[in-house]
C-alpha cells in the first residue's frame, strides 16, 4: 500500500459516521400536494395523530426561492406524548415527532430523523421498544412515499 493510500485511509478512519444513516429520507415521484396527502394518510395509518402542519414558506419566494412548498408535519400518539413527556421531560424538545416535506422540481422530498437516536437521551431499556416502534413506523411511512408513482 502506498503512502498516499495510507494517508487517505488514516483520514477516513478519523471520519465520523455518526449520524450518516440516522436521517430517514424518501423521494416521491409525485408532486407536493399529492405527496403531502399521502404522507398524512400514511402517518395516520400507523396510528398517529397529526397535531400540526407548520408552513416554513414565509418570505422564501421573496428571497429568490423558486418554491414555497416547504412544511414541517408534527405527529404523535396523544396518550404516549402525555405519558412520556411527564416521565422523561428531556424528551420534550423532540416531541411531537416531526418530518419535513418540500418540493424539489416536480418531485417531493420527505426527511425525518431516526427516532432510535432518542435512546441516547433516554437510555432506559424500557423505552427501547418504543423508540424502535417509532423507527419502524417512520420507515413504513417513508417506504409508502417511495412507492408513489
Amino acid at each position: 500500500m502506498s503512502l498516499r493510500h495510507l494517508v487517505a485511509t488514516a483520514l477516513l478512519c478519523l471520519a465520523s459516521i455518526a449520524g450518516a444513516e440516522e436521517l430517514f429520507m424518501a423521494r416521491s415521484a409525485q408532486s407536493f400536494p399529492e405527496t403531502m396527502l399521502a404522507l398524512q394518510e400514511a402517518i395516520t395509518r400507523q396510528g398517529y395523530v397529526l397535531s400540526r402542519v407548520q408552513h416554513v414558506d414565509v418570505g422564501l419566494t421573496e428571497m429568490g426561492f423558486a418554491t414555497d412548498k416547504y412544511r414541517v408535519v408534527f405527529f404523535g400518539k396523544p396518550e404516549e406524548i402525555r405519558a412520556l413527556s411527564a416521565r422523561y421531560p428531556q424528551l420534550i424538545p423532540y416531541l411531537p415527532l416531526q418530518v419535513t416535506i418540500f418540493a424539489e422540481g416536480e418531485e417531493t422530498l420527505v426527511v425525518g430523523a431516526d427516532p432510535l437516536m432518542l435512546q441516547r437521551l433516554v437510555p432506559d431499556p424500557a423505552m427501547a421498544p418504543v423508540f424502535r416502534r417509532w423507527r419502524d413506523d417512520l420507515a413504513v411511512v417513508m417506504e409508502s412515499l417511495r412507492a408513489l408513482r
Binding site: V56, G59, L60, Y70, T100
Partner: peptide, 25 residues
C-alpha cells in the same frame, strides 16, 4: 427569516430544526 434562508441554502433538509422553538415546563 434570514437565518432560515441561509440554512436552507446550505442544506434544504434542515426542516428538522424549524421553526426555532423553546419549551417551558
Amino acid at each position: 427569516f434570514n437565518f432560515i434562508n441561509q440554512a436552507l441554502s446550505l442544506d434544504p433538509r434542515v426542516g428538522l430544526f424549524l421553526p426555532c422553538r423553546v419549551t417551558v415546563v
